[in-house]
């Protein structure tokens, strides 16, 4: 069975342009840089990253609304560029804006119109809308009102109703709970879980609200400046942990010790090793999915290298911390201010 989504070395560069002939052209922008990942059928896969990281660009390429510059993207084994029409039938998209309906039509009329574009008959639509609208708190009275009278929350819920009733194999969500109050956001998360998990729908979720990711996603990818920085589980409660061992000694000795360890069999069990020295205390940090094997081996190794262990700290993987760490790490150093003297 093919992957629900398969992305290989996907890059997107927006061409630069020149608005006024007497001004220099705006430079081209790299929105995606050789991104690769796969999403299994029925999986909820989240993309997180700071604003402008390339998340929406990726969703739009997969939705056939943008063409990639290079690389490939496949939906259920079909190329999104050469099999564009087929791809469109597989996807429903929820965008992060309320401007995606006709303001002068009612909620019902909007749903009828968009469902007709997917060849859904009215009686089928009615049978699908009723349970979805009920779970989202959209009553029949609300659905019969003009869309222009809807609150932001209602507008977002109507977007979800439209996406759910299409019952496409894939659902793309762009910041699904943005601009929603906590209660409405929780209703939306609950509805996504119930609708998509219940039908085995594959979900690609782009989010800035990490609560959405932790509640909904099976896996998460951190994307920053168009590059995929990491793919992992959204919460490490059962899977990943960060191990930090504080030792007394010098950073050079600790680094040499870690080098020795990370090049051996234990080293392969941890995704990353870092050494940080501050005020005579050296913190050795490892990210691992196998704490039981890594910690004793690490302590044994450090003891043999003559480093006195002061403290061992086991912390669950916290997505928000990881996100901030990755983004901060790739932030360029500030340029030195020119000397005035």
């Amino acid at each position: 069975m093919p992957s629900a989504i398969e992305v290989r070395d996907l890059s997107k560069q927006f061409p630069g342009d020149r608005i006024y002939p007497w001004r220099p052209p705006r430079p081209a922008t790299v929105a995606l840089d050789r991104v690769s990942f796969e999403v299994a059928p029925g999986e909820v896969f989240a993309l997180i990253g700071p604003n402008g990281a390339g998340k929406t660009t990726l969703l739009k390429i997969l939705s056939t609304l943008l063409l990639p510059s290079s690389g490939s993207a496949h939906i259920r084994g079909h190329d999104v560029v050469s099999d564009e029409a087929w791809t469109r039938a597989q996807i429903a998209l929820v965008t992060n804006t309320e401007r995606s309906f006709y303001y002068r039509l009612s909620g019902w009329q909007n749903l009828r119109f968009f469902a007709s574009l997917y060849n859904i008959a009215p009686q089928v639509l009615e049978s699908r809308v009723a349970p979805v609208a009920e779970s989202l708190g959209l009553t029949d009275e609300i659905l019969r009102r003009d869309y222009r009278t809807y609150s932001t929350g209602m507008q977002r819920k109507l977007q979800f109703t439209r996406a759910f009733v299409l019952q496409t194999p894939l659902l793309f969500l762009d910041e699904p709970t943005s601009s929603l109050d906590p209660v409405s956001a929780e209703e939306i998360r609950h509805a996504i879980s119930a609708e998509c998990r219940g039908r085995g729908q594959t979900v690609l979720l782009s989010a800035n609200n990490l609560l959405d990711v932790e509640r909904l996603a099976d896996r998460v990818a951190i994307i920053h400046r168009g590059r995929l920085e990491m793919i992992g589980a959204p919460t490490g409660a059962a899977v990943e942990r960060t191990v930090r061992v504080f030792v007394r000694g010098t950073g050079d000795v600790a680094r040499a010790a870690v080098r020795g360890l990370s090049s051996g069999p234990i080293g392969a069990l941890a995704a990353e090793w870092e050494v940080e020295e501050r005020a005579g205390i050296v913190a050795i940090r490892a990210e691992t999915a196998d704490v039981r094997r890594v910690v004793p081996a690490l302590l044994d190794h450090l003891w043999r290298e003559g480093l006195a262990v002061e403290q061992v700290d086991l912390r669950p993987f916290v997505l928000e911390e990881e996100f901030i760490r990755r983004v901060e790490a790739s932030r360029p150093e500030p340029e030195e201010a020119p000397s005035l003297g």
């Binding site: 029925g42 259920r76 087929w86 039938a89 597989q90 469902a115 007709s116 997917y118 060849n119 859904i120 008959a121 009686q123 089928v124 299409l166 019952q167 496409t168 194999p169 219940g198 039908r199 085995g200 729908q201």
Partner: peptide, 21 residues
């Protein structure tokens, strides 16, 4: 994974002939 979706083609056109669409 209950009620798996159809594998191919337009997944939601089960009830209408083309001319009616």
């Amino acid at each position: 994974m209950a009620n798996a979706l159809p594998a191919r083609g337009t997944p939601t056109s089960e009830s209408s002939p083309a001319w009616r669409n």
